[in-house]
Amino acid sequence: MGVGAGGCYRTTPTRAHARTHGALPERDRRIIAKDARNLRYLFINKAAEKQIGMSRAEIVGKTARELFSKETADLIEQRDKQLLAQQQQLEPITDTINNPIRGRRQVSWRRLQIGGAEEDSHIFVTMVEDHGKEMGAAA
């Protein structure tokens, strides 16, 4: 990463970028960013808003525990701890989550960290794919 014109950061595409960049059509890429220090959501794009069924205003500034069922919040927190331990998680992990608006859904996510615990900025970025399958209560 380097500083470009006007002091803006620019990045050089990597293999990880190439793997995740072509995974979904542009309009369907669901991106979520979270502050790794307090696990509060910082950003959610329109595609992710639609998938979750809540607006950005309802999500940003809150934790998974404030938004989702105990079961789903526990799973998200478990994935956050795994990401802290392994730094990057570029291979998709598929889970069944209980979406408060859309019901039980099968989703895959790729995640990475930007920054670190000792830096001013420490962010988790998640790219989510909803497999569109509503799961029964027994799933």
Results as ranks from 00 to 15, higher is better:
10 R>C: 07
114 I>N: 06
3 V>H: 15
69 S>P: 04
2 G>P: 01
23 A>F: 09
66 E>C: 05
34 K>P: 00
2 G>E: 11
122 H>E: 04
134 E>L: 15
69 S>W: 03
133 K>F: 09
95 D>Q: 09
13 P>A: 13
19 R>M: 14
116 G>I: 01
41 Y>G: 09
64 A>I: 01
44 I>M: 09
136 G>D: 14
129 E>L: 02
13 P>N: 07
125 V>I: 15
101 I>H: 05
57 A>S: 12
85 A>M: 14
81 K>I: 14
67 L>Y: 06
66 E>F: 03
137 A>W: 08
25 P>L: 07
35 D>K: 11
98 N>M: 09
23 A>T: 11
122 H>T: 00
112 L>M: 13
102 R>F: 05
102 R>Q: 12
61 G>Y: 03
99 N>D: 10
23 A>C: 06
120 D>S: 12
47 A>I: 04
109 W>N: 07
104 R>D: 00
34 K>W: 06
58 E>K: 12
2 G>A: 12
21 H>L: 08
1 M>Q: 11
4 G>W: 08
85 A>Q: 15
121 S>F: 12
43 F>V: 13
104 R>T: 02
119 E>C: 03
78 Q>E: 14
10 R>G: 07
7 G>C: 07
46 K>H: 14
30 R>Y: 00
30 R>C: 09
132 G>Y: 04
3 V>Q: 13
139 A>F: 08
137 A>D: 10
80 D>E: 13
110 R>Q: 14
7 G>R: 11
94 T>K: 03
58 E>Y: 00
48 A>E: 04
78 Q>L: 15
102 R>S: 08
110 R>K: 10
55 S>H: 08
58 E>Q: 15
28 D>H: 10
35 D>T: 09
132 G>M: 06
78 Q>V: 07
53 G>K: 05
127 M>Q: 15
93 I>R: 12
27 R>Q: 14
47 A>E: 04
13 P>K: 10
61 G>W: 05
10 R>T: 09
70 K>A: 11
91 E>V: 06
10 R>K: 08
83 L>A: 03
1 M>N: 10
73 A>W: 05
10 R>Y: 13
30 R>T: 04
124 F>L: 02
56 R>F: 00
28 D>Y: 01
12 T>P: 01
54 M>E: 03
70 K>M: 03
89 Q>C: 09
111 R>D: 12
47 A>M: 05
25 P>I: 01
131 H>G: 01
63 T>Y: 02
86 Q>M: 14
131 H>I: 01
117 A>C: 03
77 E>S: 07
1 M>P: 09
41 Y>D: 08
47 A>D: 03
56 R>I: 00
130 D>A: 01
70 K>R: 14
53 G>L: 05
79 R>I: 06
125 V>D: 00
131 H>L: 13
35 D>Q: 11
132 G>R: 02
14 T>F: 07
125 V>R: 02
67 L>Q: 07
24 L>A: 15
58 E>P: 01
29 R>N: 11
6 G>W: 06
54 M>Q: 15
37 R>K: 15
10 R>M: 06
63 T>H: 02
4 G>E: 09
50 K>I: 13
20 T>I: 15
83 L>C: 02
59 I>M: 07
51 Q>A: 15
112 L>H: 12
8 C>S: 11
74 D>G: 01
97 I>C: 02
81 K>E: 13
119 E>H: 10
95 D>K: 06
20 T>P: 00
125 V>S: 03
59 I>G: 02
